[in-house]
Nucleic acid binder design. Structure first.
Lengths: 248, 248
DNA sequence: CGGAGTGAAGTTGTCTGACAAATACTGGGC
DNA sequence: GCCCAGTATTTGTCAGACAACTTCACTCCG
């Protein structure tokens, strides 16, 4: 069986990552030496090193010349803005039940700002999906997702799906569009009248507004999202890399 | 003081990264093939691949099997929470002049929470540096940095330096401590009386609170920081990776 | 003339084996 | 008990080769 859809090094990385998740490799412990681990996993040392490189970049392991490779202390953060995508993930990561209320969608011509973000001509149709997301039944986030209507050309019925399921899930499984990365911007705001009504909170309440554009692996903009989070719904965390890269 | 040897692959990564910064390799262009680039840089293909893997993890390049390695679309965001460290960087990235007012510092025993974050025994001394940071002369951030007093054992005068210069700069250049990564958490809050007075704003004003712990390359906690940002001072951005790794 | 299929060239992925460089460990000498 | 040199272990790098995949020019056929 050699249907290798993806590089072996990726499978090796996932395997090691899973072992860490399952606790077989706890924080601080040293991995077997590269030759030993490569033999055990049935790949060459070069392939194993490729996987270790990635894991090091993700901060899961640390490699020390002449000493060994160690599982990092810093475990994964549950609700991390830089790895968790979408509200569904965030709610589940917080250990609560994710739900949707008041979902609705419509098609409209893209505004100038939206057209710029999504690389469209102003006036081209976009699908807008608006939802109130709930955690354990309580409204916590108002989200508005905007994507070019052409993605749904043949599958208009999928818009209904997006009201129920995670948008990323529909994009990937039903449309074959995988989100590769996104850029999010956020700032604190006060709830205006319309948002306050949808979230059932007083006007002027504290919110965290997050704007985000997601791209596929070719750098093509896929979705533009606006989210309004209750201030105390989540504590967002971000893993920051650097500085201290170019030390002499 | 440890001067760790620098693997060649790290120098190679910096060299390629610099070429991208200098515009010699613009977005979308294809890099020379691995054998060619390895020869040009005077390293083996294995070392070059080590560097490329890192750059790919940082999102600067994309590698496609059988096709080539391509420079990603510009992804260095000016005020990016996941790469810019410290208030000084953020202010400068926004094109404004960074300044400090009302700087003061003192030593005190660590609270239980601080001791936990910095891996100290409760009661051990910490240095607290409190500053009001200004952008073009206007107060924008109140910051409180906490680090174990033992780092300053021999250099108590450096605490004065920290009132003027970037704390990361003092840590790195004067104390030889390089911050490797940090974990930041944020949420919107309202200004309480003390913060409002320091920032010269009305009580209840919108703020973004960021608290953060920074670590060195060995995973040792170095600094714990609390920052209170004016809501409209910066638009923070975060580059998000994934999802699409491990669909369950 | 256009489109599908074919093959060669180019590029990244992986393998093997070896040596260099850095660190950890061991044991002897004091 | 401590220091230090030598040895073993481990990661870093090198070289060359082949496999897997992409791209593109070309041919062949309708």
């Amino acid at each position: 069986m050699k249907t290798r859809a993806r590089p072996r090094s990726v499978s090796v990385r996932d395997e090691i990552s899973d072992r860490i998740d399952r606790g077989e490799l706890s924080a601080g412990t040293r991995l077997p030496s590269e030759p030993a681990l490569a033999t055990e996993l049935g790949v060459s040392r070069a392939t194993l090193r490729e996987a270790l490189r990635t894991l090091e970049g993700e901060g899961l392991v640390r490699r020390m010349w002449g000493s060994g490779t160690y599982v990092s202390q810093s475990r994964r953060v549950a609700t991390s803005l830089d790895v968790n995508f979408g509200v569904t993930d965030a709610i589940r990561a917080a250990g609560m039940e994710a739900g949707t209320e008041q979902g609705r969608y419509w098609f409209e011509p893209a505004s100038a700002a939206e057209a710029g973000q999504l690389n469209l001509e102003p006036g081209q149709d976009v699908l807008v999906v608006e939802r109130v997301r709930t955690a354990d039944g309580k409204p916590v986030v108002l989200s508005r997702d905007i994507l070019p209507a052409r993605f749904l050309a043949e599958h208009a019925e999928l818009a209904d799906q997006m009201l129920q399921r995670s948008m990323y899930e529909v994009l990937e499984k039903d449309l074959g569009i995988a989100i590769h990365h996104g850029v999010a911007t956020f700032r604190p705001i006060r709830a205006d009248v319309t948002v306050a009504r949808r979230l059932d909170i007083p006007r002027g309440e504290l919110l965290l507004a997050i704007w985000q554009v997601d791209y596929d692996e070719d750098g093509v903009a896929i979705v533009s999202s606006h989210e309004y989070h209750l201030a105390d719904a989540f504590d967002f965390t971000v893993h920051r890399r650097g500085p201290g890269r170019r030390v002499q």
